[in-house]
Amino acid sequence: MSMIQDDRIEAVSALPGPSLAGVGDYLALLKPRVMSLVVLTALTGLVVAPTGEHPVVAAISLLCIAVGAGASGALNMWWDADIDAVMARTVTRPVPSGRVTPGEALAFGMTLSVGSVLMLGLAANWLAAGLLAFTIAFYVVVYTMWLKRWTPQNIVIGGLAGAMPPMVAWAAQTGTVSFESAVLVALIFMWTPPHFWALALVKSEDYARAGVPMLPVVAGQDETRRQILLYSLALAPLGVAPALIGLGGWPYLAVSVAGGVEFVRRALIVHRVREGAPARKAAMGLFGFSILYLFALFLLLLAEKLVGVVPLTGPVAGWL
């Protein structure tokens, strides 16, 4: 065999093997369940904003925000493939399972990130595009690459990325960042720690094995339960806040008060019941309820605006 042929065979051997990735694997990289929450909160931001673009342009803006969120999920899976491979909850993800190579996930995530930001800039305005770029960068660089493996405050600070969609959407509609959109961001921001820590209480062994310093791993289960209760106490009034600043009506006020009380009640149970299966049940109960709570509040804001429920006006709304 000639030397040229040998070289060629070596070069061919060095090529990556045929990709095993299916379309479903690429969709999984977008973290569709997280994306569904982003779509709802961003849609609410779009609809409750006082002025707006044409509905078709608003729909394209929403698509851009959803794709941007998905892109950051893909980049997260690219970076975290090593720890995903040792956690039962994430071992079947496309990259650790070997169906998608890290390079493919990186290229996919970067293409969608750049594409969604540019498209949002063209469709809506460059303030919204800048906020989307900030959100993606914050999630990938600040949370995934830095905070997640460094501090138990990872999901507290990193939660800002998940909280931003209503503000991006509001900016897409109005071209400004308002106090109202900041309240919606604060609501999701404050919701994130009790939501994730409730899950982390149950999955703490998984996180410990992966070396992720989640609060139950670093500070212990008791401290986590205390923190869940404190954040829940802060969240409950924030959940009511949209009704006090002219975004929500009476139905929202009623549901947000009842939901806040139930959230704190469940956090108290998590705080009190600390052993065995009942403790696990309480934590998962709070985790499940937290998802229902946030979906219900944003769905209600959305529905009230669509059916024409008049937002409350009062002293607080008046001051603003």
Partner: peptide
């Protein structure tokens, strides 16, 4: 080159590539 070195796509790989 791939055929010469035995790198031939399986039915499943071809199906997935087509879907992509």
């Amino acid at each position: 080159d791939r055929r010469a070195t035995g790198l031939v796509l399986t039915e499943e790989q071809q199906r997935r590539r087509r879907a992509r």
